[in-house]
Design a binder for these strands. Structure first.
Length: 205
DNA sequence: CGTTTTTGACCCGCGC
DNA sequence: GCGCGGGTCAAAAACG
């Protein structure tokens, strides 16, 4: 089981043999065009890393719920710091609202062979938590985008099987541009040869 | 001195 | 209902 970090849909039969020396895209029929820029941004390999067998990266996209734009708008700046949950013992549970931003978010999981788990993707991240994962000696770090109003989170952990692999999971779509804005106009996905692109259709009612 | 990390506590969903 | 596992908060420490 190498997909323990994300609940991949089961309609990806070839996922097992995809994890080799090629970037693998697994995406649903979601509006990839909305986040194509960051796809391209994410896919920029580090300088010097060739497509040798020593560099293996898996990239998975999954869509949990249909993304409603209004949910993005409303969740801006009301969860993180706008409302303190427990000042002392006043548990403002805010049960009526969905405090969790588990609204339809895009989840992108990377699995990269790297010694450093801090991979600079152009965004500014602030660590907000660290937890030790069950069944794994390696802790899991939680980061959040430093941009105001942008609630994109990512969690970084090491593979419990191969500690030389780093699993980076991005949650959400940035509502702003990268500090180092990179636009590949006309090119939704720049896929160098050797990279495998696969689009799977998932019926999402 | 402002900003980020650290770290334990708290919260919440889920399975038993 | 309770315990566990996982995610988040926030005060204090660390860092520049």
């Amino acid at each position: 089981m190498s997909d323990h970090y994300s609940s991949l849909p089961t309609n990806m039969p070839e996922y097992s043999n995809l994890n080799h020396h090629s970037y693998t895209y697994l995406m649903d029929t979601l509006d990839i065009s909305d986040m194509d820029f960051q796809v391209s941004d994410f896919l920029v390999p580090e300088a010097g890393t060739s497509e040798e067998d020593s560099t293996a990266t898996n990239i998975e996209y999954e869509q949990s719920n249909p993304v409603l734009p209004e949910q993005f708008d409303e969740s801006v700046g009301h969860d993180g710091s706008g409302e303190k949950r427990r000042p002392n013992n006043i548990k403002s549970k805010s049960g009526a609202k969905k405090t969790k931003m588990d609204v339809g978010q895009l989840r992108v999981a990377f699995r990269t062979k790297s010694e450093l788990e801090i991979m600079d993707d152009g965004y500014k991240w602030r660590k907000y938590g660290k937890k030790s994962v069950k069944n794994s000696p390696n802790p899991r770090n939680y980061y959040r985008c430093n941009h105001v109003g942008c609630q994109v989170k990512k969690r970084v952990e090491r593979d419990r099987e191969d500690s030389r692999y780093v699993i980076t999971t991005y949650d959400g779509v940035h509502t702003h541009e990268s500090p180092s804005i990179v636009y590949y106009n006309e090119m939704p996905l720049m896929v160098p040869n050797g990279w495998t692109l696969q689009a799977s259709q998932s019926s999402c009612s």
